[in-house]
Design a protein around this nucleic acid. Structure first.
Lengths: 221, 221
DNA sequence: TCAAAAGTGTTGCAGGTACACCCATGA
DNA sequence: TCATGGGTGTACCTGCAACACTTTTGA
């Protein structure tokens, strides 16, 4: 007998760090360890819909960026039975996240991508592969933006890319490249109560965003 | 009840064309249609091993390039039961391919990637996604070479990339870029019996090949 | 008036693009 | 000697990398 499950690597961005949403297992096997949110697959539900459900239960969010990573199918990846898991990764605006009833703060946690706790099963490997995929995708499609709030400064955007790609970027050149895309709209607003020149706040031009997503682009940072 | 299967998109290169190995179904459902080779998954076998087995049964080849694409899990993708398939793609040297006993020429066929027959299930979509993946991979890892015979000319190599990427490439620049990689070794041999200047034949430097594969590279064609 | 971060102008250089020409072979 | 495809030299030009300076705010 083979079981199928669906797991989600939910990425968020906060305090200049790339984060993953993890849940503490309260059932055997591996009770007490942190793990990716997920569930066994219902035979009446498509795998994509199953990932969407997991996401909605946890975060109450819908219509968010969600892409399959792949299936993980080593024989012994789950103790006791044969479970093949199909993993997805999601990009969410962490400000929109509100933990759902039933999930207490004790159980759910946003963990830094580069200081993860001990994880159940092969979830460490799954996160690593999700991150690798994200690093590539972010250069090819304008999806990184899904991680930001509606209004953000260019510095926010740069820090996001630096966190995802785990490398430093040159401020001047980063801004030049972003400008070339003509993807940002000046909201007219500025930062408030900061002890320095306040940064302009931008939002996306949804039309250009969709257009770039279709056409594909290469963001040579 | 959910069933799992593993399907393989086996790529080959012949007559300047990128090809896929397809098999005519001789069982219901969709008997008579062409389909990707594959099988239901045995609970004692890892998904990767299952793909390797399919490949070996069909082509008698081992140790070849094999990478998972992803799982396909729409509810109605397979008539009558819920079957989630996990797809792999393989790159083989078509000259090494010898159809195995039990598979007659009537049943197995190398089809052009851009003139595929009607296919069973969602296999057309799977091939399209495999091809898309190959297009990307071929620029990021030196894997395209798996599709060529041991000895090949620079023109062979260029035609391969043109077939995969479905675009024309400039001869002069293509050669310059290949040279920069220092990946090729002059075998000292040349084409024979051609009515023009015979092309030099090359083979790979396995060491550099492995090194590039690890490091990653970007082949900006 | 000072500290801190926002925001911009410019120049040199690497490397990609494009083009045209010569070479070796069989018929 | 001609047709065919193999093989190379180079000049232009785009566009990325690197750097330093000005601006605006709160304290």
């Amino acid at each position: 007998m083979i079981y199928n499950s669906v797991d989600c690597v939910i990425f968020g961005f906060k305090d200049e760090k790339l984060k993953v949403l993890l849940i503490k297992r309260n059932n055997e096997p591996q009770k007490g360890l942190m793990a990716l949110p997920g569930d066994f697959l219902d035979s009446e539900v498509s795998i994509y819909a199953s990932a969407q459900n997991t996401l909605k239960e946890l975060t109450s969010l819908e219509n968010i960026y969600l892409e399959q990573i792949r299936a993980f199918g080593e024989i012994d990846r789950y103790p006791g039975k044969r479970v093949i898991t199909i993993s997805y990764y999601a990009l969410i605006n962490i400000e929109h996240y509100t933990p759902q009833a039933g999930y207490t703060a004790e159980k759910l946690e946003w963990c830094d991508i580069d200081s993860l706790p001990k994880l159940a099963f092969d979830h460490k490997e799954i996160i690593a592969i999700a991150h690798k995929r994200l690093k590539r995708r972010v250069r090819t499609e304008p999806i990184g933006f899904n991680l930001l709030p509606e209004k953000f400064s260019l510095t926010n955007l740069q820090q996001l890319y630096e966190a995802i790609l785990q490398m430093e970027l040159n401020k001047r050149n980063f801004r030049t490249k972003i400008n070339q895309m003509k993807l940002l709209i000046d909201t007219g607003k500025k930062q408030e109560n900061v002890a320095h020149k306040p940064a302009k706040l931008y939002r996306f031009d949804e039309n250009i965003y969709e257009k770039l997503k279709e056409e594909g682009f290469y963001f040579n940072l």
